[in-house]
Simulated scan of single mutants.
Amino acid sequence: MYKLVAIDVDGTLFNDRKEITKEVNEAIQAAKAKGVKVVVCTGRPIVGAQPIIEELKLTDEDEYVITFNGALVQNTHTNEVISEISLSYQDLKVLYELSLKLHSPMHFFDSKNVYTPNKDINQYTVYESHINQIPLHYRTIEEIPADFLIPKVMFIDEPEHLNKIISNIPDSFKEQFTWVKSAPYFLEILHPSVSKGNAVKQLAEKLSIKREEVICIGDGENDLSMVEYAGCGVAMGNAVPSVKKVAEFQTFSNNENGVAYAIEKLILNK
């Protein structure tokens, strides 16, 4: 019997109109009623995840959310932080210098804000602020305090240019950080021990839930680690090939209530 299901948001929980359909919500509530722990697992910041948690009524005692692609795990009822793994100010300086060499716009976060050191603010930084309803600030690197903790940094640009940026990242940097492409225009950079898979594993162990009792549902490259970790990894119909390759189960797309179908088949036995 499955005891925990971790669900990605964009391209998975949300359809292309950024909606959680009635069918998906009802399936999640039915899973909760069976005692299954439902965990939203997203690259979004906690502020951007909050409306989703509330819509799905995942704010009871002993319920959790994973944000920043695994950099932050916390209790949704008490806001207690279970795990927080951040980049340092020195990491930020190094990544900023790399962004200048690669001619890549960038932005970065604390728990409640997004910042950019680029005076000409990129449209994808504005989009990031908009979709998460999170304040956006222009700050030079020199204006950032030395004790600043950063859940993630992002290089952002038009897909074709971002692909060129990725191909020019030195191998030494690839080993120094975790890099995940969460959208055609978003490259996320995290502490090397951070991933959705590691966060789900850590939470499952805290809750004394075995790996084989975990389902993870996702569609993008940043979901690969958790789909690989899960006892049953689920790929959306719209998932990238790498996720489909490692998944044990493939469901319908995010526009066809794929999350609902997976829950019905694997948890509700419909």
Rank of each mutant, 00 (worst) to 15 (best):
V9D: 07
D10L: 11
L13C: 08
L13M: 06
F14V: 01
R17M: 12
E19A: 11
N25C: 08
A27G: 14
A27P: 09
I28W: 03
A30H: 06
K32A: 01
A33P: 00
K34E: 12
G35Q: 09
V38H: 12
V39T: 11
V40K: 06
V40R: 05
C41P: 03
T42H: 12
G43Q: 00
R44N: 12
R44P: 04
R44Y: 11
P45M: 14
P45E: 00
I46S: 14
V47F: 08
G48V: 01
A49N: 11
A49F: 07
A49V: 04
Q50D: 10
Q50R: 15
Q50S: 15
I52T: 05
E54S: 02
K57D: 14
L58P: 05
L58K: 02
D60N: 15
E63K: 10
E63C: 05
E63G: 04
E63V: 02
Y64C: 12
V65F: 10
N69Y: 08
N69F: 10
G70I: 06
A71I: 00
A71M: 03
A71N: 02
Q74E: 11
N75T: 09
T76H: 09
T76C: 01
T76V: 03
T78V: 03
N79I: 00
E80W: 01
V81G: 01
V81A: 06
L87F: 04
S88E: 13
S88T: 15
Y89H: 15
Q90C: 01
D91T: 02
D91I: 05
K93S: 02
K93Y: 05
V94P: 00
Y96P: 03
L100E: 14
H103C: 00
S104D: 03
S104R: 01
P105C: 04
P105A: 11
M106S: 10
M106Q: 09
H107G: 13
F108P: 04
F108R: 05
S111F: 07
S111R: 14
V114N: 04
T116V: 07
N118D: 15
N118H: 13
D120K: 15
D120I: 11
I121V: 14
N122G: 05
Q123G: 08
Y124Q: 09
